[in-house]
Design a binder for these strands. Structure first.
Lengths: 234, 234
DNA sequence: GTTTTTGTTAATGTAAGGTTAAAAGCGAAG
DNA sequence: CTTCGCTTTTAACCTTACATTAACAAAAAC
């Protein structure tokens, strides 16, 4: 764990700054992949597993936020740090909406960046240990493959799940027989917590219940005001 | 549990700024305790459970870092946000060293602060999830799972408990065979102590007695004018 | 006995959740 | 640019769950 270098995806269009930053990070024992724009960034992201993404906000073609959204669709967990040119409140707020872990105003202090990187990677490490590699679940008679987004009952024809259906079921499965708090799903999947996202989530619960009806041993229970519980009756 | 307001300890010596910030946070549905200096801050910290601490760095007698260190000695988990007057690198680094979760430069944008608070509290919530043993009680022939809010008798069908039923029974169980003072329940669960909440509590005692009737060895006794006692007869 | 506290049941009002359908968003294809 | 198909959100309506309050009975205190 500690003996392996952490991998950082750095997406920064300014060639000078980008190279300097890359070298600096590498000097500090990170393995850095440098992409020069949003497109390239996404390509590289898909090809590899990273422990952290550092995205410049202001980039031609595809800005950091758009890129972040795409990244989040593939992976809800990777930490993201934004580099914003100025202290723009909207930027910061927008960043949090797409699930940023932190942001830094340029020009920033390199030591501070290092601290943040360390703090964030460590935090995720403790949080994620068992989570991140789990994409296949057995749920009663069902098999959920949440990487390919399908659900199969008793080895029959798999049903395709939409991204939200998939994420929600995965989150429930991760907490099998235990409470999956409403808030957790809302912040992790919807990245927002208000009346409408909450109702939207209820709609998805209904959809999932419909899929799961095939196995009467499997059900999603509600715990009023707290969240849901995926139980498998024996 | 989740329906309860999150509690913030705010330690800020500037009375104007402190009060405004406190009001702002309260307007946004947090319960705020405001301490005017480090000493007071530590005293209040010891007395209560908080979900988050916001500490000003620059304070007379006891600065924010020293306070943070003391807090960390008592509690390694509570999130801490520092307010630093200027962008002082040393401050930031020192903050991270004592285990800050974030820092904000004054003057800061209030919406940004709110976002950070939300993000941090949420993060902690997901981290702390699995310590479930603390929520399970044996009460005579009953099992109370106060996280999933159900009560089971002799391994039979579990009965669902409402949040208030659950909290009250849990509090009684924590004081098993001993006095559970009225006032304690009223302040801890109802967070208010008046004629009506008191009557409401009596209603819940009646409900609990009904559930517990299944086991004639278990009963809730009243101690006139003092409170209640959950006894398990052998 | 009278006052205060507690026991219990029922009624009420509000909030949360279940469900279905229509509208809006959105990317891919034409 | 428009259309199509899929996904997601919004809206509406209904049911269930909860907490509080009221009302009256019973104990306990004095």
């Amino acid at each position: 764990m500690e003996d392996q270098k952490k991998r950082i995806l750095l997406v920064e269009d300014d060639p000078n700054f980008g190279t300097v930053l890359k070298d600096y990070l590498m000097m500090n024992d990170y393995e850095v992949t440098h992409a020069k724009n949003g497109m390239e960034g996404f390509e590289k992201f898909k090809k590899d597993d990273f422990d952290l993404c550092i995205l410049d906000v202001m980039m031609p073609y595809k800005d950091g936020f758009t890129l972040a959204k795409e990244i989040r669709e593939k992976n809800t967990d990777v930490p993201i740090i934004f580099l914003t040119a100025k202290t723009m409140k909207e930027d910061v707020l927008r960043g949090y909406k797409v699930g940023a872990d932190d942001y830094l105003n340029k020009p920033f202090d390199s030591e501070v960046l290092l601290m943040k990187i360390k703090a964030i990677i460590q935090r995720k490490a403790t949080e994620t240990i068992s989570d991140s590699k789990q994409f296949e679940f057995k749920i009663g008679g069902f098999d959920l493959n949440s990487k390919l987004r399908f659900l199969r009952f008793n080895g029959g024809e798999p049903v395709k799940l939409s991204p939200k259906e998939n994420e929600l079921l995965r989150l429930l499965a991760l907490h099998e027989n235990d409470l999956m708090p409403r808030e957790l799903a809302l912040t992790k999947i919807w990245r927002d917590d208000n009346y409408f996202t909450s109702r939207s989530m209820d709609v998805y619960i209904a959809k999932l219940r419909k899929y799961l009806k095939l196995d009467e041993k499997v059900e999603i229970l509600n715990i009023h005001g707290e969240g849901f519980r995926l139980v498998i009756n024996t």
